[in-house]
Amino acid sequence: MKRAFPILAVLTAVLLSYALYQALEVAPTEATMGDVQRIFYYHVPSAWTAFLLFLTNFVASVVYLIRRNTKADIVALVSAEVGVVFCTVVLVTGPIWARPVWGIWWTWDLRLTLTLVLWLIYVSYLMLRRFSSSGQTPLMAAVLAVFGALDVPLVYFSIWYFRTQHPSPVIGGGGSLDPRMGRVLLINWAAFLCFAVLVCWSRYRVERLQREVEETQALEGLLESRGAR
């Protein structure tokens, strides 16, 4: 297990550079958008990874609520945090792509809005974890994660209704993907998934270490106060 981490790190680095080469050189240039369309190979895999991490957060939170297992709590925290990072990437690259293609930075499109709302929900989740007092954090956070997951379909439908009433420039959708593009997309997704696993793993170890240090500190405080008397 000790060697698995460096192996994964090397694999991720290789995959990421290969995916970058594929995205910039191998993938065909899109007919109407030109080279700018290559943002797609970073934007979409990041979005999928973020959604997958949020799903992981939900599953881990439910496991925590049932079993009260510390590991599940750490997994929930880590996946939410890394998910927010990937979601931020999506929200930053999205407008950079939209500007040259549609001439606008932002539009209240279904997918964009859904991503933004998810980002807001999970940032509030991380805020709660930061602000609540130590002993109750995992439980409160797990409950909030369940509420956030309940909210997602409602957010989806509300934005969908909203869109049907306030039509805006039709974006993407329809049209089939060139199979070569699809292949490059999948390679990029695999690379980013590996990267996400790597980051989560490191963050998981840091969190474990942090909890141990904090516990020991509390313990030393207690021992000292007893020993002093």
Binding site: D35, V36, I39, S46, V89, V92, T93, W97, S202
Partner: peptide
Amino acid sequence: MNSYLYAAYAATWIVHIAYLSMVS
């Protein structure tokens, strides 16, 4: 037009590296 592409790629890695440096 290509500057948008490179800006997006750079932004992606800036976000990731900022987070990783925070963790480390």
